[in-house]
Amino acid sequence: MSGHAKILNEWGEDVTPHFLIGAFKVLDIALREGTRYAVFKDKSPSCGVYRIYDGSFTGKICEGRGVTTAILRKYSISLFSNEQIR
């Protein structure tokens, strides 16, 4: 997630602060537990590892990272998409 990206709900309301709160809670747990690897649901605005929905609410997918995965990557936690796991 870039420094200026916002997450808007279907009514155009900025819900970014809620996503950031959740992401930092996940980071706190991961650091406390010594997490080195994690599997997340791709396409999610929070958990997308490689792809996320584009925010148009049309189902269109684009390359990008979710809020939580972007933060965890900064702390060297290796991330995998659920689509990589069989």
Rank of each mutant, 00 (worst) to 15 (best):
I29K: 14
V67T: 12
G66E: 04
V15W: 07
E33S: 11
S76M: 08
N82C: 08
G12E: 11
L27R: 12
A70P: 00
K41W: 01
Y75W: 14
G59I: 07
S78E: 11
D54L: 06
H4E: 15
T68H: 07
T16W: 04
T16R: 07
F19E: 10
D42A: 02
E10T: 11
S2C: 10
Y75F: 15
G3E: 15
E13K: 13
F24D: 06
E10P: 00
G12D: 10
I21H: 09
G59Q: 06
N9V: 05
K6S: 06
Y53W: 08
T35I: 14
V39K: 06
G66K: 08
V39L: 04
L79P: 04
I52Q: 04
L31R: 11
G34P: 03
I52W: 02
R51M: 08
T68I: 13
D14E: 10
R36N: 06
I7D: 02
G64P: 06
P45A: 09
G34C: 10
L20E: 15
Y50M: 08
F40E: 01
P17C: 07
C62R: 13
R51P: 00
S46L: 07
S76D: 14
V39S: 05
Q84C: 04
V15S: 04
I52K: 05
I77F: 01
Q84T: 05
R51F: 12
N9Q: 05
R86W: 08
T68Y: 05
L31F: 01
Y37N: 14
V15G: 03
L72P: 01
D42L: 02
D28V: 09
S46G: 09
F19M: 13
T35N: 00
S46R: 07
S78W: 03
K43Y: 12
S76G: 04
V39H: 01
E63H: 07
E33T: 08
S56M: 09
A70E: 11
G48R: 01
R73Q: 10
T16H: 08
R86S: 14
F40L: 14
A23E: 07
T69W: 00
K74W: 03
G48D: 03
I21G: 10
V39M: 05
E13N: 13
G12V: 09
C47T: 08
G48V: 03
K6L: 10
V26C: 13
K6T: 05
I21N: 11
L72R: 05
S81Y: 02
K74E: 15
T16V: 08
N9G: 03
R51C: 10
F57L: 02
L27C: 10
E33V: 01
I71M: 05
C62F: 02
G64T: 06
K6W: 00
Y75K: 13
N9I: 06
T58I: 01
